[in-house]
Design a protein around this nucleic acid. Structure first.
Lengths: 206, 206, 206, 206
DNA sequence: GATGAATGAGAGTTCATTCAT
DNA sequence: CATGAATGAACTCTCATTCAT
């Protein structure tokens, strides 16, 4: 609405500033790494003064957090839309594919941002992040048993952390398609046996 | 031997100094985190001067690396002895147990140290670290098929990174015993289906 | 102008800071010598924080260089104006007088600063510095012969380095006026014989 | 004498140690420059412990001074022998040649060592160094007039400092032979006019 | 005498953050 | 609101020197 824009010119400018800062920070993180991601460099690249930057972000950490949340939100949206668009499709593969291709940025960037999310959010953030996955499989009739905390943890973390590991070790030269296949296979194996176990109530004893 | 001690008083002192530095660094890392792990603080806690510290470690990074290698060596020894002592026992569970209990230190400590290993070693270190796992299952007759790079990656990284994730999120309050069970279950599921797949040559298509 | 000041309050402040730093550095160099010319001491004496100092100078060396350039610029201006104001006056004496009285600071100060200039500028700086001298005599009709590289070197360096030596040995208690006379005499002797030699094409054989 | 050596094995060893230290220091100064000339590096290269080094030299400066004195002594000997061997030859050229070829080491080495001599010796050292030159010309009948302090200064310093300047600016690519010629010419011009002036008692007025 | 581990003051430098303009 | 000069605590690292062995 023009009305809205005219009424809050400051908010519009503010959003532009925030965007510029986050975009600048992202570029620097990609190009130069966390060590060179200084507040002054961010401000400079964003085309704002350091003072202005601090008017929108209380400290450096807040910038990292906001970047992480952007990534996280984008990912969540992507996964959600995948599930909504093609609910019949293999949910596991769709989600894994989203996780693999949905995050932009280098290995270091992804790590830095997810670290920031952890630092800031702890439980709450983690919950927000991974509920999506659980939701996506909860509709499938074969998983209408109750998952233990630990099983949920594995379901929601295995793929993400393996992707992180893969990103951290580019020298392994893993084939993305094959890795996707294997991750799907890993999770399908686990989910399949989980269902079987819930029927039988047993598995290999300790 | 008194002889030995008398002969190498310097080497004995030197080793004591190195130990004191690494122990001090470990304590600080545990208690205050990486950000507060400064060389001067380490020296102070170790009861040596900052100059002495730098006589044994060329820079801060070298201290982290040495700590990481200690952890890594201890872990490797533990896994090896587990396999040697009880080769008939379920290799997967034994190794997972070793991984879970073999590393001391908080979540951040473990992360920091494994990060240091990555930084320093790259591929070589990674290889060294994970071959143990592959070796341990390579003897089992049902796995005498050839593993792809990506499958090997999953076998060697899934547990470690899930444990890292679990450590990073203490607020999830995961039960260590149940987590162990689930990790075993995850890996056994994967390995089992991997064997089946190698027979059939097929799995859920892309 | 108030206008100017109001328009560029920052640049004015910045210049003041730079001046304060250079002035402080000069005083310390004079009073305590190069060894005690530390960045923190400079900042303290200049009444600015160490951080501010580093906002204007990338490192300690840059401060020395800036001081050297100030001296050098002042000297060049002085020589130029001398030549312009009284071109008919004995060029050699005028220049020597400028060299003697144009540089402020103790012997060590002068040495340190000219060393800094050498380090930074190498050939270029040296050229810049000494062209002035050659220019000043190039107008005199009796020197319209071509000077060899080595003769030029002597003409441009003898006085400067002898003054440096004199400054380095204050215990010799040389009389400035007499020294000036001798330097003039030295250079006039050389120039005179140079002219004679260029006519005859000979001098004492090797 | 074997006797001497047998009687004072300690003194012989001491001299060897001192020699080793000075030789090591010289090599490091040549190869790596003053900034890398640390006491520990000297000791290491000399094959002695740092403690031993400090038994022979009270501090780092003393090492530099000793090196400077060696150079200086060698130079003095060379000049003396030149004059003794060929007193009839042009004294000025002989001495200049000795000065040019008698000092070993790079430009920085020479500067560092002569700086050390200045620092330590002040007047006394300077006197010791330059009397040789004055002595060498004092025998020539045409110079039996009394030289002023300032003239002596120029006679004894001009060549040395011009050579130092030439060494400091290798990019000028001065031809050593031509430079020698010019220095001889400079000094002969000065000396010649000095003699003439002493007869007439006058020169270009201030 | 010889050793070399230990010392520690002090160097140069960085950067998140503040606040007067 | 925007600015960016100023801040200064904190950092990593060096090296001449000492002294217990």
């Amino acid at each position: 609405m023009t009305e809205k824009n005219r009424r809050n010119p400051k908010q519009a400018r503010a959003r532009a500033t925030v965007d510029a800062v986050l975009e600048a920070a992202f570029q620097i993180l990609e190009a130069e790494g966390l060590a060179r991601l200084t507040t002054s460099r961010i401000a400079e690249r964003a085309g704002v003064s350091i003072g202005t930057l601090y008017q929108y972000f209380p400290d450096r950490e807040a910038i990292l957090l906001a970047m992480g949340q952007r990534q996280s939100d984008a990912m969540r949206e992507k996964i959600t839309s995948i599930i909504l668009d093609a609910p019949e499709a293999g949910g596991v593969r769709a989600i894994i594919r989203a996780l693999m291709h949905g995050l932009q940025g280098s290995a270091e960037t992804r790590m830095v941002l997810s670290d920031a999310l952890f630092r800031a959010g702890g439980e709450a953030e983690v919950g927000r992040q991974h509920l999506t996955f659980l939701d996506s499989i909860s509709g499938r009739s074969e998983f209408d048993f109750v998952l233990g905390k630990e099983s949920s943890f594995i379901l929601t973390h295995a793929v993400i952390y393996l992707l992180r590991a893969a990103a951290a070790e580019p020298e392994l030269n893993l084939d993305p398609d094959k890795l996707e296949d294997e991750l799907v296979f890993l999770m399908e194996s686990y989910l399949g046996n989980l269902a079987a176990r819930s029927d039988a109530g047993q598995f290999s004893p300790r």
